[in-house]
């Protein structure tokens, strides 16, 4: 059966790359759990044969934290949209990053709320049009890479649907990484974002991802001299791997700091009362 996404929707390309990443890692279907919230992006888990859970808007990371804590051996993947992750779920996002829990967050950023009719999101660029911004968005967007970086995520990458091979490689690396990993994927919504902003069809939007991005160097630095540019509007968007570092993972830290001492204490208490 064809999926529910509109013709040319970038979310299908994310599904395509994700399946290739899972195949590349040769993961067992039973070892993966995919937890999503609400939105076009969230529907992705309905098309995979892993353990899946469709939860509350913005709260997928909270459910993911619980599942990972209960069963740390599972690979937990959380696909989210830009509104799901950064508006409704903004707090869950920064706190999951702060804890460095071993969860892979995929932020499918199409700059708009597609499912509910094209409202602007916290990732809609300033000046862009949306159903709720007929004169152009006044608010400045979040930069997911900088936000995740400040919040403490230990793996941060950004890619686009045009760069599908990079996406597969980055998703595989993110799933393998031990700690909170964030992969932002710039995705096209030709139906709402494209129409509202005269951005053309899916092909035109993907060509823009190709032409208006710049790959970061191996150490995560943005190439080129950006010091003299003031407007910011025409800056190419940096894509690639920005951070991959080792930091204590939450489930492991919880086990060594809380569970093991508590168990030891309980055992010694039991020894004291036994004859």
């Amino acid at each position: 059966m064809p999926h529910i996404w509109c013709p040319g929707c970038g979310h299908g390309i994310v599904l395509n790359s994700l399946l290739r990443a899972v195949e590349k890692l040769q993961l067992e279907r039973n070892d993966i759990v995919m937890i999503s919230g609400i939105g076009c992006s969230a529907r992705i888990q309905g098309y995979v044969d892993f353990h899946t859970m469709h939860t509350l808007h913005g709260r997928a990371l909270a459910f993911a934290t619980g599942i990972k804590m209960a069963w740390p051996l599972l690979k937990v993947i959380v696909p989210m949209g830009d509104g799901d992750a950064l508006a409704i779920g903004g707090n869950h996002f920064i706190h999951a990053a702060r804890r460095n829990i071993d969860v892979t967050a995929i932020i499918m950023n199409n700059s708009i709320y597609g499912m509910t009719g094209g409202q602007h999101s916290p990732l809609t660029q300033c000046g862009d049009h949306a159903t709720t911004a007929p004169y152009g968005t006044v608010d400045s967007p979040f930069d997911v890479v900088q936000l995740a970086s400040a919040a403490g995520a230990s793996f941060i990458a950004r890619t686009t649907t045009y760069h599908a091979r990079d996406m597969t490689r980055l998703l595989a690396a993110a799933i393998e990484h031990k700690g909170f990993s964030v992969v932002e994927v710039l995705s096209q919504c030709p139906t709402y974002y494209g129409r509202k902003n005269d951005a053309g069809d899916a092909v035109a939007m993907m060509e823009r991802f190709r032409d208006e991005t710049v790959k970061v160097t191996a150490d995560g630095a943005v190439p080129g001299d950006r010091s003299g540019r003031m407007d910011g509007a025409h800056e190419p968007v940096p894509v690639g791997l920005f951070r991959r570092e080792e930091r204590p993972e939450y489930c492991e830290a919880y086990r060594t700091r809380v569970m093991e001492p508590a168990l030891e204490q309980a055992q010694s208490a039991a020894r004291d009362v036994s004859p």
């Binding site: 064809p2 999926h3 299908g12 599904l15 395509n16 399946l19 290739r20 649907t161 091979r165 899916a202």
Partner: peptide
Amino acid sequence: WCGDCEIRCPDL
């Protein structure tokens, strides 16, 4: 056989 169509097809 570059696979560019295969990897970018949103509908698989």
